[in-house]
Design a protein around this nucleic acid. Structure first.
Lengths: 213, 213
DNA sequence: CGGGATCCGTGTTGATACTG
DNA sequence: CAGTATCAACACGGATCCCG
């Protein structure tokens, strides 16, 4: 038996053998947003050593979780269908970890892909279905996201674009999503700065994206 | 920043910092079944080094996931409310890993606690709600479980007891839960041996516990 | 320049022995 | 029973180097 195995015939142990190593599930998290190149993955995980990134990509490919995109001119990594089935795991972990996030520290970064998955975690389809379709342009730290909510459907893209509400926020946006801070108070205290659109649309945003803290 | 941190302000990274180390989530898995003593945890994870078990228990206590049961004469570890909130994570991992389990190898064991959580993972409340209340006494390898299904409620206990259906099975029970093998075929080939009760109750078992493979 | 491979110091893990 | 101590093996982190 390989030393890294747990020696149990159990689904949880098998899962941890496949994606339990350091950095592995964070690669899956970012690849759940979309296919990514080696350099993009490295940029999304600033502290990962390059040799570990290369090793994880090999292991995830051997496990049938990641593959190199076929018919692509450049090398692009993407999740296999089995790898995409890890989305519930990542969302459950994100919801649980959200409650333990505390306040951001100076050395902690927010990446576009992690923020995208956080929005997917906090998305409440039933609440959104009752609200009008809305496009938000959110700039959180260095991450510029274009968030479209249409009924119970959510799409998050990178970059800028036309939106009903455009706003800038720091990591303090977390308190809005948790309900610890009301949207109005967030605007008053400068946690959120509305660049364009009716500020009360931030109430709709808070109703659409919510996670218990 | 501690070297073991990921340097991101993100729920998934925070979760992995708390329960991402080797063996940690397996301790949570077993504690989800019930409070356990140090020796019971060691027995449920036969390959864990004892110093690592001690270290993990300390870390999980520092993280507010595990605590020593108060007002207990002996030392017993149990999950805190926040620790119990990891159940969706463990179930999602178990369901995903189930598909990659393959065939059991000689050195792999099945423990009562891992089997209990596997049954919780495979439990289908809506299917069970349409069936009569049933008690199963299942012996899978060294694990003797008493499984009670009453409507949409499931309770799994250790040991033996009165049951509508008593059966012995090997790890091949996995194919019954996945639907790869019909209950009738499992009995015919000896994968499942019915000790007591109507053999067709195994059909009810398979309808109550199912996971896609 | 993108996509890695190599080397090396260090921390974590695994195995075993030992102790209050 | 519930851990602690010790030590070898290995994985990770950081830096550098290589190759098409």
């Amino acid at each position: 038996m390989a030393a890294r195995e747990y020696g149990q015939y159990c689904g949880v142990t098998r899962a941890l053998e496949l994606i339990g190593e350091r950095w592995a599930l964070l690669l899956v998290r970012d690849l759940l947003v979309g296919p990514r190149r080696y350099g993009e993955l490295a940029a999304g995980l600033p502290r990962i050593p390059t040799n570990v990134l290369a090793a994880r990509l090999k292991e995830l490919q051997a496990a049938g979780i990641v593959r190199r995109a076929p018919r692509s001119r450049v090398i692009v990594y993407e999740l296999t269908p089995y790898g995409r089935e890890l989305e519930p795991v990542v969302l459950a972990l994100g919801a649980w970890g959200f409650k333990a996030m505390g306040d951001p520290r100076a050395e902690q970064v927010v990446t576009p892909d992690s923020m995208t998955m956080a929005l997917r975690t906090a998305f409440r389809p039933d609440a959104a279905a009752l609200l009008p379709a809305t496009a938000y342009a959110a700039r959180i730290g260095p991450a510029a996201l274009l968030v479209r909510v249409d009924g119970a459907a959510l799409t998050v893209g990178r970059g800028d674009g036309p939106a009903d509400l455009a706003f800038t926020a720091g990591p303090g946006i977390r308190q809005v999503i948790s309900g610890e801070v009301t949207p109005g108070h967030a605007i008053d205290t400068g946690v959120v700065e509305v660049l364009h659109g009716r500020p009360d649309l931030l109430d709709r945003f808070a109703a659409t994206f919510h996670l218990a803290a």
